[in-house]
């Protein structure tokens, strides 16, 4: 197919065949785990990992990323890559969640602590982006995708400077960034917590050691797998976004169902590997 014949909006179309194939792979992995391991801690861990992956993949779509054009004030958003910014926020959340997991067993408290850690990182970063644009470059915030900010109602087009698509972070993009950080932090922490519980249970028997002796290994393994799976899901979502996105008001945001299916399948496949090293 030539470039002229290619569908110009192919990026936003949802391919139903691919979605169904993805869902079938997901169900096969879940069913195989259930038949081999039964309703065990490993099975619960797999479900938790899939939910965590979906939270990350969905959350990345909220993060306003402008890439290289944003660095020249040519497009709105934060001047860095989608996957990397989301990873920075999500891992900061994972840091907080892992710390909370040391002192409490309440899953809800641990996951929300991780979420708030990610949200906090994004809130501070987004505020400094606005600070640099306004006080360092003298540029007001203006969206290129909507005429009015959906949250504040502020009109946008007249604040766009000539020859640009907009610049800075309108308030809706700021809120999107914080929500993205919350989802990313929660997802990363949930994956870590599920794997940690599994490893703490299985490793002492496998290694013929006391629970206290295997704890550092369990923490390290769960942390490494959580970071790895975070990056897998963030990069998948970045491919779905293709370049830049302004936040939840951007038309590209509507592509998120594809990312949810893709993240679920990728998390299931990665998760089964992380589980198999101790459970099979």
């Amino acid at each position: 197919m030539s470039a002229v014949a290619a569908k110009p909006t192919a990026g936003s179309a949802v391919d139903m065949t691919a979605m169904i194939v993805g869902i079938i792979i997901l169900l096969i992995v879940i069913a195989a785990t259930y038949f081999v391991l039964g309703y065990s801690l490993a099975f619960i861990a797999l479900i938790g990992i899939i939910i965590g992956g979906i939270l990350i993949g969905f959350g990345v779509h909220f993060v306003p990323v402008g890439g290289a054009p944003a660095a020249m004030g040519q497009a709105p958003g934060i001047a860095t890559g989608v996957a990397m910014l989301a990873a920075g926020a999500g891992l900061a959340g994972l840091f907080g969640g892992a710390w909370a997991a040391q002192t409490t067993d309440n899953v809800l408290v641990i996951v929300i602590t991780g979420a708030v850690g990610g949200g906090l990182m994004m809130a501070i970063t987004c505020m400094f982006v606005t600070f640099i644009y306004v006080f360092g470059m003298g540029i007001p915030c203006a969206s290129g995708k909507v005429a009015k900010d959906p949250i504040t109602g502020d009109t946008q087009p007249e604040f766009k400077s000539q020859g640009t698509e907009g610049h800075g972070l309108p308030f809706v993009s700021y809120v999107g960034g914080v929500i993205g950080g919350l989802f990313g932090g929660a997802g990363g922490t949930l994956i870590y917590l599920m794997l940690l519980n599994l490893y703490k249970e299985e490793l002492p028997g496998m290694m013929h050691a006391l629970p206290g002796q295997v704890l550092p290994i369990a923490v390290s393994l769960a942390g490494m797998f959580a970071i790895g799976m975070f990056l897998v899901n963030a990069v998948l979502a970045a491919y779905n976004i293709t370049g830049t996105i302004e936040g939840p008001h951007d038309p590209k945001f509507k592509r998120f169902p594809r990312a949810i299916v893709a993240s679920a399948v990728a998390s299931a496949v990665c998760g089964i590997v992380a589980i198999m090293i101790v459970a099979v």
Partner: peptide, 9 residues
């Protein structure tokens, strides 16, 4: 992530 987001523009 924080350094590139803040300093790049």
């Amino acid at each position: 992530a924080a350094g590139s987001a803040t300093g790049n523009p």
